[in-house]
């Protein structure tokens, strides 16, 4: 499923002074492009939103009161948040290691950071089941410890950590590359300890990039379906996430409920977009 979601770089936004005066072909192309986007993207999503909002806001609330819908949304939100934050820490560390250290295997490591974006997430889920499934030694051992991974919440977390992995790394890396190590040296010479240097000199310029990457990872995790559907076991009320819930409702022919829950996810996703754009711009503007 949404394998490469979000590998796309942020839109260049307003930063493009080179503008052309279009000819007739340009204007025709503009019209075609606008119609294509409207038919392919705007229309289906508008229909989805329309369908979901048919019953008004109370309809959406009613859908959330369906059995397990609310639990699914809660589960989706908290697992996405936790994994996004974990990867904010590990992603920053990974970017640091990749940019600042020179070691054997560095370029391989750097390449593999993108693996979660290139591999079908269904396959990623399958890998986790293969490793931690109840019939495997590792899975049985975890289960024996009272900490089952596959078909349980830890499996969801593991899958989302996998999906999330590249976002913070890739947003922090370019900013870090632009950061002059002399700034850290300046702080040290002025008497700052390692921790102070980290907190006062390094983190502030990186903060927008870290936050932007984290939000992107969070949004990406909210939408995740392929890996979750095989890893989680989809036990309603316990390991059923919202995208899987929507899938179940569609399969059962209850498109109204599916659309209503979709509206909630869609609202969150679209609501996050401006924040991501703003943070990306901030991160970009900081490395002049």
């Amino acid at each position: 499923m949404a394998a490469l979601m979000g590998t796309v770089r942020p839109s260049p936004g307003g930063a493009s002074p080179a503008v052309l005066k279009p000819g007739a072909a340009g204007i025709a192309g503009r019209g075609l492009f606008a119609s294509w986007l409207s038919l392919l993207v705007a229309l289906p999503l508008a229909v989805l939103a329309w369908h979901g909002l048919e019953g008004g806001p109370s309809g959406v609330l009613a859908a959330l009161e369906l059995p397990y819908a609310w639990e699914a949304l809660q589960l989706t939100l908290w697992t996405s948040a936790v994994t996004a934050i974990l990867n904010a820490v590990m992603g920053t560390a990974t970017a640091w290691v990749l940019v600042r250290y020179r070691f054997w295997g560095r370029s391989l490591l750097s390449m593999l950071v993108d693996l979660p974006l290139a591999i079908p997430t269904l396959v990623a889920g399958l890998m986790i089941v293969n490793l931690f499934g109840p019939q495997t030694p590792l899975g049985a051992w975890c289960k024996g410890l009272g900490f089952p991974v596959a078909f349980a919440v830890p499996g969801i977390v593991l899958a989302l950590l996998f999906i999330n992995l590249p976002f913070v790394v890739r947003s922090v890396e370019p900013v870090l590359m632009d950061l002059d190590p002399a700034e850290e040296e300046a702080a040290v010479i002025l008497g700052a300890r390692t921790w102070t240097t980290l907190r006062r000199v390094l983190l502030p310029p990186l903060a927008p990039a870290i936050a932007g990457g984290t939000l992107q990872g969070f949004a990406r995790a909210l939408a995740e379906f392929g890996s979750i559907v095989v890893v989680s076991g989809n036990i309603p009320g316990r390991t059923l996430t919202s995208p899987v819930f929507i899938f179940g409702e569609v399969e059962a022919g209850r498109t109204e409920a599916a659309a209503a829950v979709s509206v909630v996810l869609l609202a969150i996703a679209i609501g996050l977009q401006p924040a991501v754009r703003w943070l990306n711009r901030l991160a970009g503007a900081r490395h002049v």
């Binding site: 999503l45 939408a223 995208p243 929507i246 569609v250 498109t255 869609l266 996703a269």
Partner: peptide, 11 residues
């Protein structure tokens, strides 16, 4: 990119 593929299918 912001929409879950399940929702794309539904739309």
């Amino acid at each position: 990119l912001a929409v879950s593929p399940v929702m794309t299918g539904l739309a």
